[in-house]
């Protein structure tokens, strides 16, 4: 029992992260500096926010492929509300967050009310939301945001990049919510056996809708931060982000079949991927090589973790 607990996936992953950090540190003296680490945090915030909530989605046995498109749609909505409709920027931000949350809510409704499998529903909204972004923007980008807005994506608070505070807060909240609240337990129950969860009187549909809405909110928050970081708005923002987020979540040990997974695992997965991208580049490996290596690491990590699990189960 104790042995089984010790060699959980997260432990293996944590060891791997430590080994990777150690090895990468030996390759370049510029890797393990405060500046670089903060900077990497800045770069992984958007995918991080999305992956944190994606953990909940996948734990319920669902998936959300539309997050990248929600990023594009909310970015465009932010720009259009502010520039074309002339709303004050703070209000435009709030409205963009509301639109993203609503987009996630619609996913939840389609999945729960119409019983459409999550993969199919979000494949459809992946095309729809990206299409709405393209349609509204007419391929025009919105730029010229006021200086104060860039604090969010390019500035620092108390010496730490602004968005890292947000990422940290969301990470903390979601870790607590998944591990220690009734809501979190319901999430696991749905993933383990949805029918049983329903018969036990748990609010299955309400929980799922809330999770997909939260996923939309996380994508919208990521969009606002991203717009602030790159100081422009385009309809193709966030393309392919869903696969990056899902990679981090499954690398973190969340079972794609639902019922198993932790926020801590996802955070470790995110750190490992970002450390590899950055550290390998500093060590002189080019992007195409890094892409290949990350693919191999993903397969091997889960493979090794599975082997340990099987031994521990015997």
């Amino acid at each position: 029992m104790t042995a089984k607990k010790l060699i959980r996936h997260e432990t293996i992953l944590a060891l791997l992260v430590i080994v990777a950090l150690f090895v990468l540190d030996r390759q370049s003296d510029r890797f393990f500096t405060v500046d670089n680490l903060f900077n990497q945090g800045r770069l992984m915030t958007e995918v991080g926010l999305i992956a944190l909530i994606m953990t909940f989605v996948i734990v319920t046995g669902g998936i959300d492929l539309s997050v990248g498109s929600i990023v594009g749609m909310t970015a465009i909505v932010l720009g259009v509300f502010w520039k074309n409709l002339g709303l004050p920027l703070p209000l435009a931000i709030l409205l963009a967050l509301a639109v993203g949350t609503f987009a996630g809510f619609v996913n939840g409704i389609i999945i729960t009310r119409f019983r459409v499998p999550a993969l199919i529903a979000t494949l459809g909204t992946l095309a729809l939301y990206r299409g709405i972004a393209e349609g509204i923007s007419q391929a025009r980008s919105v730029r010229g945001y006021p200086e104060w807005f860039f604090v969010l994506g390019q500035g620092s608070v108390l010496g730490v990049p602004t968005q890292l505070w947000i990422l940290g807060l969301v990470a903390l909240l979601s870790a607590v919510a998944l591990a220690y609240t009734t809501w979190g337990r319901t999430t696991y129950a749905i993933g383990s056996n949805e029918v049983a969860a329903r018969f036990s009187g748990l609010g299955v549909d309400a929980t799922k809708i809330a999770i997909y809405a939260a996923s939309g909110f996380a994508a919208a928050l990521a969009a606002v931060i991203f717009v602030s970081r790159v100081s422009t708005t385009r309809s193709d923002m966030g393309t392919g982000l869903e696969l990056d987020a899902i990679t981090a979540v499954v690398l973190g040990g969340t079972s794609i079949f639902g019922g198993r997974g932790t926020v801590v695992g996802t955070i470790l997965g995110l750190i490992l991927i970002q450390a590899l991208k950055n550290g390998l580049s500093l060590a002189g490996v080019k992007s195409d090589g890094t892409v290949v290596l990350i693919g191999a690491v993903l397969i091997l990590t889960i493979l090794v973790s599975n082997l340990f699990h099987r031994d521990a189960n015997r």
């Binding site: 794609i256 290949v292 693919g295 397969i299 889960i302 493979l303 099987r310």
Partner: peptide, 23 residues
């Protein structure tokens, strides 16, 4: 035989094939 979820293996293969082709 590795008991890996297919989405994990094929996400990995996607990276490997794409990066490999470019290289």
């Amino acid at each position: 035989y590795g008991r890996l979820p297919s989405i994990v293996v094929t996400l990995g293969m996607l990276s490997i094939l794409k990066g490999g082709l470019v290289s």
